[in-house]
Write a protein that binds this DNA or RNA. Structure first.
Lengths: 345, 345
DNA sequence: TTTAGCACTCCAAATGGGGGAGTGCTAATG
DNA sequence: CATTAGCACTCCCCCATTTGGAGTGCTAAA
């Protein structure tokens, strides 16, 4: 039995194995570590240390006489040791075009994550249900169709074509918009939804505002997940196994699981790393997620991050995700403030 | 030398080989044909016929003693022979939810194509440049940002957030909308673009309408391509070769090539089938495209269809694409007519 | 003209060694 | 006493070889 301390030497050797494995994706032998990393130790010593590390649960051998491969525990150690007190790298900030739509911002941020990491980037949009509606504008189209423009306090903007029955006379649209804004403005979508659901209990005359609200709320469903660079996964050498890859791609494309995982796991502020089996979903257990919440002011809005093989350069990726989250927050805060200085129609 | 006729027997054998190959994706031997297809012929006879078909260019052997595989020419024959005079199958029409946005219609149709065919569905949206603008509505947001709602005569609807400098007083927005509509309504986006470009030659006072038009026109760029079921490609047994698959997936994801291919090749009305090497792009030469234009009235609007391996049940796929195109046309026509009975604000 | 028979071809999967990378252990060394 | 050189051993990976089978083309018979 080995005493269970992680001495300095063991730490160094472990780090060397991690580095090399992250580079090469292949089992790391004692000779390679001795040559490539100037620890001043002979292969034999390193072998002994590696045996200790194996017993401590940080390394495994794919088979009796192969090199060592890091376990989830090793990655966890690596990540935990680098998370506190890390100086900010000066990363070139992504070339965002000065668009104003939040939707395209999300898409661009996701793109940025995937390009910078060469992995798959993800941005989970804020949940609409807790967002506060600011105002509603209606615009006449033709017949009994109107375009509803919904503006939220966080600067979000959604449009939806509604069917109204009976048709609202074009002259009254403006008035009707004001009516909707008065009734629903300043409330969260959730509370509006509850209000609509309770509507059955109020046996008044049929209320057209209620009907419109119902139609608008249909948009509020799932939180939108922006993914990009899914195919970067294909470049990972570990995917000689085509079946596992298919499963993963399908999971990513379906998005549902990922949304669940993000909302359930990664909702506490700051950067989170979920490594391999720490992850509840089987198709994702060969992968790691690095995520961070992003917020405007003190309110957590959504989650963004990166998915990739367990073997990833966590230091860089963690920095990337953290900085991107900060950036996103700044951007949204900027938007938010601009939005507050609102102008009445 | 074999006389170059396609006798009835040869036709039957060819059809049998096609059928079997489409089912199994493996070379077809004479014994299998004899057993599985009741042609009343012995394997030996079928071997002779197959040799003839090979000389005529309809079949090949992957190697000397394997079964036969259909060539592009065989598929071409198959497709050409089934295109004329085909009775309409009664396909369950897809369960479209009664949405009114054209964008989601496109996405849904593409989805329908991919689900029904178990291949990749595509819908190419109409080119905006030749579309006629109907009217523009501006809606105040905050500060110097306004939401522009652009309605086209074909019932299209786009929104874009614009920055206006100097800010337009909210009271004048309505007037300004009318001004834009008067100036640009009834013209194609292309002609508006030309007008804007010629603006430099008119050395008048700086024109705010012009600036806004420029911003709106930024949307007019590429035609939108809706793809779905890309991953269905993964289920094709021919993709043991992982590299070819990656290339294909990348091509699909990038979309550009596909847009080119569709606009250049498939623009003549009706169903078109592009088989294997008939296709100019290398990454797509192991695939076939079945496409059809869709139109409202007599104007061709866009293109939709399916991409899959050459080995596909062309009869079913061709029917599917044709019927979907018809359906799309009806839908758009309906929308169009509704839109014509327009209501002034 | 069709078909049975047969020799032949060629792939695909199974088999069977080397070669090599890596380990664990032991004994020697500072 | 920790470290290291040396060595025997293990096990995978890669290669060449073998083998079985599916399929063909040809020939001769029906």
């Amino acid at each position: 039995m080995v005493e269970p301390e992680l001495t300095e030497r063991r730490r160094q050797v472990l780090q060397a194995v991690l580095d090399d494995y992250i580079r090469t994706a292949g089992p790391v032998g004692s000779r390679v570590v001795a040559k490539r990393y100037p620890l001043g130790l002979s292969p034999a010593t390193i072998r002994n240390t590696m045996a200790d590390l194996e017993e401590l649960g940080y390394l495994t051998q794919p088979h009796t006489s192969a090199g060592r491969v890091p376990t989830d525990q090793a990655y966890r150690f690596y990540v935990d040791s680098l998370l506190p007190g890390r100086e900010r790298g000066h990363r070139a900030s992504p070339p965002f075009s000065p668009r104003t739509e939040v939707e395209s911002l999300m898409a661009e941020i996701s793109q940025h994550l995937s390009v910078s990491s060469r992995l798959t980037g993800m941005v989970l949009a804020p949940p609409l249900r807790t967002t506060i509606l600011e105002r509603v504008e209606l615009l006449a189209l033709e017949g009994n169709r109107v375009l509803a423009v919904v503006v939220t306090e966080s600067g979000w903007l959604t449009t939806k074509v509604l069917s109204v029955e009976p048709a609202i006379p074009p002259g009254e649209l403006r008035e009707f918009s004001r009516l909707l804004t008065d009734r629903f403005g300043g409330r969260t979508f959730e509370s509006i939804q509850q209000w609509v659901e309770r509507a059955g209990e109020r046996p008044q005359d049929p209320d057209q505002a209620e009907d419109l609200a119902r139609q608008v709320l249909a948009v509020v469903g799932e939180r939108n997940l922006y993914l990009s660079g899914i195919l970067n996964i294909l470049d990972q050498p570990e995917f000689s196994d085509i079946q596992a890859m298919k499963d993963l791609l399908r999971t990513l494309e379906a998005k549902g699981r990922l949304v669940n995982l993000l909302t359930l796991h990664a909702d506490s502020p700051g950067v989170q790393v979920l490594i391999g089996r720490e992850n509840p979903y089987e198709e994702l257990q060969d992968f790691s997620l690095v995520t961070s919440t992003y917020s405007a002011g003190n309110q957590v809005l959504g989650i963004l991050g990166v998915v990739g093989p367990r073997r990833m350069p966590y230091d860089q990726i963690v920095s990337l995700v953290e900085e991107t989250a900060t950036l996103m927050g700044q951007w949204l805060r900027g938007l938010n403030e601009a939005e507050r200085s609102r102008v009445r129609v």
